[in-house]
Simulated scan of single mutants.
Amino acid sequence: MTALAGKVVAVAGATGPAGRAALRRLAAGGATVVAAGTDPARLDSALDAVRAAVPGARASGQIVDLLDPQAAHDWADHIEAEHGGVDGLLHLVGGWRGGKRFGDTDLDDWDYLHDRVVRTLQHATLAFQPALLRSPAGRFAMVSATAAHRPTAGGAAYAAAKAAGEAWTLSLADSFAKEVPEDGAAPTAAAAILVIKALVTPDMRHRQPDRAFPGFTDTADLADTLAGLWDRPAAELNGQHLWLTPR
Rank of each mutant, 00 (worst) to 15 (best):
L226G: 11
A76T: 02
Y158G: 12
P246Y: 15
P17F: 10
D221W: 09
M142D: 11
A234P: 06
L132M: 05
A131S: 14
G37A: 09
D218H: 14
H91G: 13
A35M: 02
G85A: 11
V195I: 07
A36C: 09
Q122N: 07
G215H: 09
A76I: 02
D65P: 00
L170R: 10
D48E: 12
V50W: 07
A137V: 02
A156W: 01
W230E: 12
H149T: 01
F216Q: 00
T188E: 08
W168P: 02
D183M: 07
Q240V: 04
P151L: 08
L226C: 12
A147S: 12
H78W: 11
H149W: 00
P130E: 08
A22K: 02
P17N: 15
V93L: 09
E236I: 00
M1E: 07
G103K: 04
G29K: 06
T225S: 15
E236W: 04
D231H: 10
D87Q: 01
L133T: 03
G215T: 06
A127D: 01
Q70N: 15
T188D: 05
V34D: 08
G56H: 04
D108E: 07
A14L: 10
V34Q: 10
A147R: 10
A192C: 08
A161P: 00
T225K: 04
G84I: 00
L126E: 02
L132C: 05
D44Q: 12
R247K: 14
D106L: 04
K178E: 11
A192F: 10
L47M: 10
V34E: 13
E236D: 10
M204I: 08
D39M: 03
Q208P: 00
A3P: 00
L172K: 06
D48V: 00
D115V: 00
R20F: 15
A14T: 13
D174I: 01
T125A: 15
A131K: 03
A167W: 08
I193Q: 06
T188L: 04
S135Y: 12
A198T: 04
D115L: 02
T32Q: 14
V200T: 11
